[in-house]
Structure formats: C-alpha cells, structure tokens
Write a protein that binds this DNA or RNA. Structure first.
Lengths: 193, 193
DNA sequence: CGAAAATTTGACATGACTCAACTGGAGTGG
DNA sequence: CCACTCCAGTTGAGTCATGTCAAATTTTCG
C-alpha cells in the first residue's frame, strides 16, 4: 500500500510528524477501482472518508426522471464522500462512481474521528480543508446563479482544464445543469465565432 | 455587551469551559447595525468573523449589469463572512448588508486564529460548523441544478419559513437566480391552483 | 400624506428543453 | 480486415421556461 500521496497532501497544510503518520497508516486502506465501479450507491450509508490517489470520480444524484446531476468531480488529491450521510448516519441519496480506473485511500468514519480527537493537527487540517471546499462550492454556486449556460461552460473549461479533457461532454452538461444537446449547441456557437 | 447567545450557540457543539469563555470574551466586540448598513463592501478585505445575534443579513455579489446575486442569508445564530477574502487576504467581491436592524458579535481574524490554536475545542467546533455549512451549500446547489424555478421557490419557502416572510420577494428571486418579474408570475401560478 | 420601493401584468424576445434522426468514432467478434 | 454495435456528439423543428422592458398598481416607511 502506498500512503505517500496522502502524506504529501497533508504537507500542504500542517505537515505530519512520525506519530501522526504511524497513526494514519494504521487506519488507511487502499482500494483499486475499474471504470463504473462505485464507492457509494444510493441508499448506502456512507462510512468512509475517501482520498483519491489517482483516477477520477463523479458524485451525483439521480432525479425522478432518472437524470444524473453531478455535484462534484473528484480527481487526484481530493476527498470525496457524502458528508450528509456520514454525519447523520442516514442512507445517502447520492452515488460516487469511478469515471476512470482509480486508486483511493479510505479511512473508516470512526477511525478518522479517533484521529481527529487524538491529534489536534488533523482537526486543524480538516477544518482548513472543509473551509476550502466550502469556498469552492460557494464560487460555483455564485457562478451558477449569476450567469447563463454559455458563460458557465467557458468558466468550467478554464477552471478545470485537467478534468474537462478527460470526460465526455455529457458529464459536463450534467455538472452545469443543462442538457447534452444544449451544450452541443453552445459549443457550436463558440467555434462559429 | 451580551455574549451569551454566542456561548449558547457553542453549547450545541462541544460546550465551552470557563477558560474558553474568558478567552472568547476578550476578543469579541458587539456591533449594532441599522437597515442597509454594511459589514463588508466590495473591495474591502474581510477581517472579521461575524456572528449574528439578532436581525438578518444578505451576502451578495454585484454583476456587470449591476444585478445582485444573493449567496447567503444570515439570521440569528449564523456566521457570515467572505472566507475567500479572509483566507487569502484579498479584496472581496462581495457585500454583506443588514436587511433588518441587527446586532452582531465580531472576532478579528487574528484573534480567532489565536483561539483556534490555543483551544482545541474551538478548532473542533469550527471544523464541524464548516462541515455543516458545506452540507447546506451542497444541498442548495443540488436543488438548484436539479429543478426548475417553481420547485426551487416552493422548496425555499418550506426550508426557510422564518426568513421568507421577513424579506421582499425581490430578494428571494435574487437568491434563486431568477428575475423578480418571473417570480411574481410563478407566485401567480401557484395561487391560481 | 407623499415618495420610494415592491409587486403585478402583458407583449415580446431569447434561453433552454424535448424528441427524433443522423453522424462518426471506438470497441468487439467473426 | 470487415461488419456490427454502442455511445457520444450533432442538428433541426417545435415547445416550454425564463428574461426584458414598460406601465399600472399596491405596499411600505418616513
């Protein structure tokens, strides 16, 4: 098992010392996933914090018309989990699915909570991590309610170049909250300019 | 100065002991605001964490057409600040404005950071608080990209009854990302049913 | 009471969705 | 290497959702 990427990730915040690394190693498990495999499915209770080492995931909900709505893409060095389900111990209404062959490191809910209360540094790092995730989401929401679909699309492209050229446009449409057909027309307009 | 509401607020998480309360008291200041007064204006650098004791605020951005887009309402027992500006020490592109006469408790950025690193409990509580804010935002975003304006409006009404009957519909429209005129038509449709 | 703001209404324009058909590329099995 | 299928992407016609602008009406607040 290769836990290094996670340790390097934490080094961008407050770097971990040996005791913290040892404690972390004890609770982390590695998992390999093929395309279309799930970390979480609707009605599961989310029990793991998942750190993406390589690959790419989508987290989405399915509405009554069976349409997917993507809440988050998660690639290298990102966390992906349904906090709502985790916190409240409730069945999730989301899915988390691999878009590419992927490797993840997982920590059980209870184990992470132990880490958090044993080492203040984890508490600190996760506070900051959640603040950052919050800011990203706030920016996305603002973008979304402020602009039309074409502007949102262009903004997505230059905010996530490393994601946008790894996924089909269908998924981008679902992330933006528009239909694939309409996205295709937008793309037509843009190139015609 | 009445700091009790803030202490009671923290009691919903890990309750504070005397040392923590004393430290908190030293860094909190109270502020009274009239309608239309600002906590933060575009291009200010956000320097305070603000806890709303009473009243109601809107946090919003202004686009190139001078239209407001409301990111968050903040009423009793909520925090309101621009984390982006706070964290990166950059001029904010948001405004935070009182919709009602309000009372807030503020903590300077540096002071809160001292609290966080001195008392693990603050670190813990703020981690949880930010996780909760993150979940709320995630739910809002999902709602927003998954449904049409009418469904979003109805959802807003029963999610925030205590806010929706204190503010003009114009502001609800701005929060939902639609025009006031269109919201008015939606309301017409609903009552006609 | 009077001014300013919020709300409603209607006509019209644009944005975005639906459905169905078509195109073209990426496997897959023969 | 070919025939086949499958899936993503495109296109067009028609429809519904939402925006724009202007005017009339109502509400709020000083």
């Amino acid at each position: 098992m290769n836990i290094k990427p996670l340790i390097q990730y934490f080094n961008r915040y407050l770097p971990l010392n040996k005791a913290e690394i040892t404690a972390l190693e004890k609770v982390v498990t590695e998992k390999h996933l093929k395309r279309k495999q799930y970390i979480l499915q609707t009605n599961d209770i989310c029990n793991y914090y998942t750190f993406v080492v390589s690959g790419l995931f989508k987290m989405y909900s399915i509405d009554k018309n069976c349409a997917e709505h993507i809440i988050q893409f998660a690639c290298e060095n990102e966390w992906v989990e349904d906090l709502n389900s985790l916190h409240k111990n409730k069945p999730s209404c989301l899915c988390i699915e691999a878009i590419e062959p992927s490797v993840v490191l997982q920590i059980k809910k209870a184990d992470l909570h132990t880490l958090l209360s044993t080492f203040i540094k984890f508490e600190r790092n996760f506070r900051v991590i959640h603040e950052e995730k919050f800011m990203e989401l706030e920016n996305r929401l603002l973008q979304n309610i402020s602009f039309g679909a074409e502007e949102n699309y262009i903004h997505f492209l230059d905010q996530f170049p490393q994601i946008s050229n790894r996924i089909p446009n269908t998924l981008i449409a679902s992330y933006l909250g528009i239909t694939p057909e309409f996205l295709s027309k937008i793309r037509g307009n843009i190139t015609r300019k």
